[in-house]
Design a protein around this nucleic acid. Structure first.
Length: 490
RNA sequence: CGGGGUGUAGCGCAGCCCGGUUAGCGCAUCUGCUUUGGGAGCAGAGGGUCGCAGGUUCGAAUCCUGCCACCCCGACCA
């Protein structure tokens, strides 16, 4: 082996970066903190987009597109929003360059803009400015829009997929006549996110509510899905915000209701990003490389033909072609890797590193016997099966892999979830095994901040389900309505 | 922004402390032959303003000064 992936045990962080590099998902760019998404990574993103987009549309949403540039003054309109994003905005101040004899290429001072433009860190402001013009009557509501876009946040410290200065995401922005309807929308989306995470990514998630300190800048309530990585750190995988009337007020967006009264519009916004790819890697992959769930894998099955002579090559490729046609017809994404100049062993390794769920090997021996070798990436198993009527078998196998990955991730999360009754226990669990630590919390900012300062663990969420066992906060002794999830997080 | 580290071939590095022919090595690339059921072997070939700018010196990858960039670890965040 020429180069090896760093093992998780040795250095989890380096392992993560190595997997991305070896699986050719992304590359560094000439600009600090930005990422080049390579074809393997982008295909994964496209599959995520496709599944999510269908779910959004099935629930009545439409796609639209708003500009990347936002007038600087817009950012000033919602107080909490400014606080949250001002520190990390890319600002456009000039419109052209010029060649200076001394300094070289510079921003032309004569092209300074009347008003600075902000490269969107998120689009609430420009969208609510627009909605204020689109909405007059209750008949104009609801508006249920989503956009697939890139956003820029000038982050201090970046990490491929998990936090990059520019990232791809979808952001939904909806407008409603009533508070209940907006809250229902927020929850509908949360359910879509959870369903997507669990059924497509095979990543189990906890649905919950963020505490005030972790809330989105400008939201009344932030709902989230939280996932657990193999190293015991949590990752926020998606958020859905109930924005109340904050943005409607900031942008004077009112509608006339059925009682002939003017009312501010109720809002939601929600998003998931290319960060999900980071989650996918950190939940399933191993020291050999990437492991992808079949539903999202760009290539589900890779067939490696094996031959020596031209005669063998012809025979093997003929059978390979037949298998490909059959599996394609069954709806399986299969490739036949008939590249000369790469040896079978090399190809085996490549598909393993890249996380292809199932690898088939087909040699002269198999052609003779009417068989094919099936190797599963998730558990390393190898079996030889009949090459006739492979379609049904393969669909079943892919299904098993998909479910197996979810079950494994769920077990892992369960083993990394601990309920504690005292703060001593809390500290010891956090330091020994990490993971989610369920503990009573009195609901105050003070306790939350103290824990954060002492342990770096934050309240990941107040769970939507199972938040009903009353007790007492072990730190303050005050009453608590239920256990909340603490963890150190990405 | 704090701490640590690194800039020498496409990638990964050695050389630097102690200045001295034509700057090396591994991988990758190209050609040829042999190979092909788990990352092939042999032979040959191509590829470099040594991060940038100054300085010291007969002579700088190496010494001095300044700058820049990136990576990793923290605080902040999807």
């Amino acid at each position: 082996m020429a180069e090896a992936i760093t093992s998780r045990e040795q250095d989890y962080s380096q392992w993560y970066l190595d997997v991305i590099k070896f699986a050719k998902l992304a590359d560094y760019s000439p600009v600090r903190g930005c990422m080049i998404i390579r074809p393997n990574g982008y295909a994964l993103w496209e599959n995520m987009q496709k599944a999510l987009d269908e779910m959004f549309k099935a629930t009545g949403h439409q796609n639209a597109y708003f500009p990347i540039f936002i007038p600087q003054s817009f950012l000033a309109k919602e107080a909490a929003h400014v606080d949250g994003f001002a520190k990390e905005c890319a600002v456009v101040t000039h419109s052209r360059l010029k060649m200076d004899p001394v300094l070289g290429l510079i921003a032309d001072p004569d092209s300074k803009l009347e008003e600075n433009l902000i490269v969107r860190p998120t689009s609430e402001t420009i969208i609510w400015d627009t909605y204020s013009r689109w909405i007059q009557s209750w008949r104009d509501l609801p508006i249920l829009l989503n956009q697939w876009a890139n956003v820029v946040r000038w982050e201090m410290r970046t990490r491929l997929f998990l936090r990059t200065m520019e990232f791809l995401w979808q952001e939904g922005h909806t407008a409603h006549a009533t508070e209940q309807e907006a809250i229902a929308e927020t929850l509908t989306i949360l359910d879509i996110y959870a369903k997507f995470a669990e059924e497509y990514m095979a990543v189990p998630v906890i649905k919950g509510i963020k505490t005030a300190s972790e809330r989105f800048a400008g939201a009344v309530e932030t709902y989230c899905i939280e996932a657990m990585m193999q190293d015991g750190k949590a990752l926020q995988a998606g958020t859905s915000h109930f924005l109340g009337q904050n943005f409607a007020k900031a942008f004077e967006c009112k509608f006339q209701n059925k009682n002939n009264e003017l009312e501010y519009v109720w809002a939601t916004s929600w998003g998931v990003s290319t960060r999900l790819i980071g989650a996918l890697i950190m939940v399933h992959s191993d020291d050999q490389g990437l492991i992808l769930p079949p539903k999202l894998a760009p290539t589900q099955v890779a067939l490696v033909p094996i031959y020596r002579s031209d005669e063998e090559r012809t025979k093997v490729l003929e059978t390979a072609g037949r298998i490909k046609a059959e599996l394609t017809a069954a709806g399986v994404r299969i490739i036949v890797d008939d590249r000369d100049g790469f040896r079978p062993g090399w190809k085996f390794n490549e598909y393993e590193v890249q996380g292809v769920p199932v690898r088939l090997a087909l040699g002269p021996r198999d052609v003779e016997n009417g068989t094919v070798e099936v190797a599963r990436r998730d558990n390393g198993s190898k079996t030889t099966v009949s090459s006739a009527n492979l379609g049904e078998f393969m669909l079943k196998t892919l299904d098993e892999v998909q479910n197996g990955l979810f079950e494994r991730a769920l077990k892992s999360r369960e083993s990394m979830t601990t309920t504690v009754e005292t703060y001593e226990e809390f500290l010891s669990v956090l330091d020994s095994k990490g993971g989610f630590v369920r503990m009573h919390w009195d609901g105050t900012d003070e306790t939350e901040q103290r824990i954060k300062e002492e342990t770096k663990a934050t309240i990941r969420c107040i769970p939507l389900e199972g938040y009903d066992e009353a007790g007492f906060d072990p730190i303050s002794g005050k009453p608590s309505k239920g256990y909340v999830y603490f963890a150190r997080s990405y």
